[in-house]
Design a protein around this nucleic acid. Structure first.
Length: 601
DNA sequence: CCCCCCCC
């Protein structure tokens, strides 16, 4: 019987390339460290053309070798493997393959011989290119020298560790505990304390990654104190002897089924050598336009350009009474979506409002409020500004070359209290002929309209600082402001918008009023910013209004006949103003053409 | 062993 080995695959793999599920023959194996449950084996494998001895068997596959299922001359399909470049004690780098999963296609006893005449593959990345040492083609469990792990971080020579085989994150599991990982710290939380029925203490957690995956590690109490200062974001460490357990996906979106806990046995040593092969961070970016379809409370990775930023806002948490600081950023990307990202605390304070950085967030929580979705940073969320990433440079290019002016759909747009009405677009002429607004209750309708004029006078006012009260304040000219509704004076106020505008469509036009949230959506800036501009930078204020003129929105309007001074007149309020989603707009237009013409398009 | 992460 002939066995087809994947000839040439080893050369591809050892040059750092990928080869999908190569078929190889095992020509030998050798125990290189540990004993009992912690044994580790090195294999001599052949693809028929070359043989290579720096193939490691992941510990979970040891059984196959020990039981004899996997033996010399076995033909196997390597379903999953990783390779990594290792420092080879002064002789440059050596690429090692770690076999994570195999299917045995034919037992060694059936094959019974070496297939072909494979030549030893020399390590091409190494100048010395020493041939791999030959191994006996018979598994002889020889007592390998026991590797003793230093237990403390003091006097730990990291070169000892680096000369050893490190284990890929992807192969860690609770069923093996003898490993060393070489990982970069992606994120480190602040120290936090807890107190509950099961006890109290301090902890911090960190997110780690290597070429094969990522994992969260948490250090409690003694380990928290011992390692907090040492562990630094972006640095690479050798870590061993942690406890692994199943990760709770509710609190992390790292791609790993497990997480680890530091124990008193845990060893951490900084990697002092060049370690650029260990990646800096792993993202699973979601296009902003897709965020609206995600489940609330899920943790997402997003990249976007900060198109606008609110002022710093201070507020009191309702449940805890804690003083909070927040800043809301609007992120846009080339998907045509926009989303609000809320920063908290010092992250909010230190944000430079005069910049439009590319921002990456990893593990931001999708929040839902009043049926609009936004992102909120948690303590565990990684936020980076203008990171040196291909995606970031691409997005910067998009933004600077017109993306900044692109019409966007803000999935976080506040929808006000609007609930009624049809989503069908009608025209002002339709609204008139249907006599909308003549009834007791008022009528709702939607249309595609252009803002043709904005009244800049009285568009922003100083409102009562009380949460539920938006009453315009009377300036007492003594540093205090009086609210007639609350019947008291305040030293502070909040800006609110009350925007009057004209909206036109091809059939006519209508004077409309937009209250705070909808006016913010139309003007594209928070009321606080607009108030500040009105007060201190009138030119920018007027410019902003000029920019919005002739912008098109999908309006949801509420219209009702009201009587002023014996004169009945239609009052139309903007319930919602959304930038145009042209894909959706075109579908609606095509549908209405079909309805009108009866022609299938 | 945490897992709170805030506000409209």
């Amino acid at each position: 019987m002939a066995y087809n080995l994947s000839e040439g695959s080893l050369q591809v793999i050892m040059n750092g390339g990928h080869y999908d599920k190569p078929v190889m023959q095992v020509l030998g194996s050798k125990k290189i460290q540990g004993s009992g449950a912690n044994e580790k084996y090195r294999l001599l494998v052949s693809d028929g053309r070359h043989s290579y001895s720096f193939a490691m068997l992941a510990i979970q596959l040891n059984d196959k070798l020990i039981t004899g299922e996997l033996s010399d001359y076995s033909v196997v399909q390597i379903d999953r493997f990783v390779t990594s470049l290792l420092k080879n004690t002064g002789k440059g780098e050596k690429r090692v393959m770690v076999i994570l999963d195999i299917t045995i296609l034919a037992p060694g006893s059936q094959v019974g011989k070496k297939i072909g005449n494979p030549q030893t593959l020399t390590d091409e990345s190494s100048a010395s290119a020493a041939p791999a040492p030959a191994m006996q083609p018979v598994p002889k469990p020889t007592p390998a020298p026991q590797r003793t792990m230093p237990v403390t971080t003091t006097n730990l020579d990291s070169s000892i560790l680096s000369s050893q085989m490190t284990h890929p994150i992807a192969s860690l599991s609770p069923y093996q505990n003898k490993w060393v990982i070489k990982v970069r710290v992606m994120n480190k939380s602040p120290i936090r304390s807890w107190s509950n029925a099961r006890g109290e203490g301090t902890l911090f957690s960190m997110d780690l990654c290597d070429e094969t995956g990522e994992i969260r590690a948490t250090a409690f109490k003694n380990e928290c104190t011992k390692f907090y200062d040492m562990i630094q974001v972006d640095k690479v460490y050798y870590i061993s002897r942690c406890q692994l357990k199943t990760a709770n996906k509710q609190f992390t979106n790292l791609k790993n089924d497990y997480e680890m806990t530091f124990t008193s046995e845990t060893v951490v040593a900084e990697c002092m050598e060049e370690a650029s092969s260990v990646p800096t961070i792993k993202y699973d970016f979601q296009p902003i336009s897709e965020i609206a379809n995600k489940t609330p409370d899920s943790l997402l990775d997003v990249i976007g350009v900060c198109k606008m930023a609110s002022d710093l806002q201070e507020l009191t948490a309702r449940n805890t009474g804690k003083q909070l600081k927040k800043r809301e950023l609007t992120l846009v990307d080339s998907s045509g979506g926009a989303v609000t990202l809320t920063l908290w605390g010092t992250e909010a304070e230190k944000f430079d409002v005069n910049s439009n950085p590319v921002i990456t967030v990893k593990g931001a929580r999708l929040a839902e409020f009043n049926s609009s979705k936004s992102l909120s940073c948690l303590a565990s969320t990684m936020v980076r500004y203008n990171p040196d990433l291909p995606e970031a440079h691409k997005l910067r290019g998009w933004y600077d070359q017109g993306g900044a002016n692109m019409d966007i759909v803000n999935i976080s747009a506040k929808s006000g209290v609007y609930t009624g009405g049809s989503n069908e677009w009608i025209s002002f002429a339709d609204a008139e002929s249907r006599q909308l607004g003549s009834g007791e209750k008022g009528d709702y309708y939607s249309l595609l309209g252009v803002v043709t004029f904005l009244f800049t006078d009285n568009a922003v006012y100083k409102a009562c600082p009380q949460e539920q009260c938006n009453k315009k304040l009377v300036d007492q000219e003594n540093g205090l402001f009086r609210c007639e509704k609350c019947n008291r004076e305040y030293p502070n106020f909040k800006y609110r918008l009350l925007l009057a505008a004209n909206v036109s469509d091809p059939s006519g036009d209508q004077r409309v009023t937009a209250f705070n949230e909808t006016a913010e959506a139309m003007l594209g800036r928070p009321a606080a910013d607009i108030g500040r501009m009105f007060e201190y930078d009138k030119n920018s204020y007027l410019e902003l209004f000029e920019e919005v003129k002739f912008k098109t929105f999908v309006f949801k309007l509420r219209t009702k006949m009201e009587t002023y001074n014996d004169e009945a007149r239609l009052k139309t309020i903007v319930m919602n103003a959304q930038p145009v989603d042209y894909k959706d707009a075109n579908a609606k237009l095509i549908k209405s053409i079909q309805t009108m013409t009866g022609v299938e398009l």
